[in-house]
């Protein structure tokens, strides 16, 4: 199997791509810069940096952190196998809002954000599917954030 076909086949197995037609996966594979691996404690991106890549995590665990002066860094969420890391590449101003730090050695498909956006513009069916996926993802994380804000386990007395 050629390297490209192998990449398409592997990308198709990622949970985020479930339900994508083979040609849609092929188009997405065109946007893949490569598969990257990181060691523990590596910083994948930093808040304020240019959000030019989309990461589909293949393994390991990555912490999404925020730093507050005087408080320090807090982990607000962890992302692991099969999940998407970051959507800032999709929306203006394409700037990361959080840090992403590797907790356990991780690997991910790295897609060029600009290429994905162009592909979505040119192929509206794929663009709609991608937007639906990311809307679902954002809605789920919004709901999770609301639950976190409720501080459900705090003492009420």
């Amino acid at each position: 199997m050629s390297e490209k076909k192998e990449l398409v086949a592997e990308l198709a197995r990622h949970p985020f791509m479930r339900g994508f037609a083979p040609e849609a996966v092929e188009r997405m594979a065109e946007c893949v810069e490569g598969i990257r691996e990181w060691d523990e404690d590596a910083l994948i991106f930093r808040a304020g940096g240019e959000a030019d890549m989309c990461y589909l995590v293949r393994g390991g665990e990555v912490a999404i952190e925020i730093h507050s002066p005087g408080v320090g860094s807090r982990i607000v969420q962890t992302v692991s196998h099969g999940q998407v890391l970051g959507w800032s590449w999709l929306f203006e101003p394409h700037q990361w809002a959080f840090d992403a730090r590797v907790l356990t050695p991780a690997s991910a498909f790295v897609l060029r954000g600009e290429a994905v956006r162009k592909c979505m513009d040119e192929h509206h069916d794929l663009g709609y599917l991608m937007m639906s996926r990311f809307a679902g993802l954002i809605a789920a994380r919004l709901q999770a954030t609301r639950l976190q804000l409720l501080d459900l386990y705090a003492s009420r007395d």
Partner: peptide, 19 residues
């Protein structure tokens, strides 16, 4: 196991249990 939030350096999963 998952916790709702954690200081940087925590090695476990962070996020609501439902996820």
């Amino acid at each position: 196991v998952s916790v709702d939030s954690a200081p940087s350096g925590y090695r476990g999963s962070v996020g609501v249990v439902t996820r």
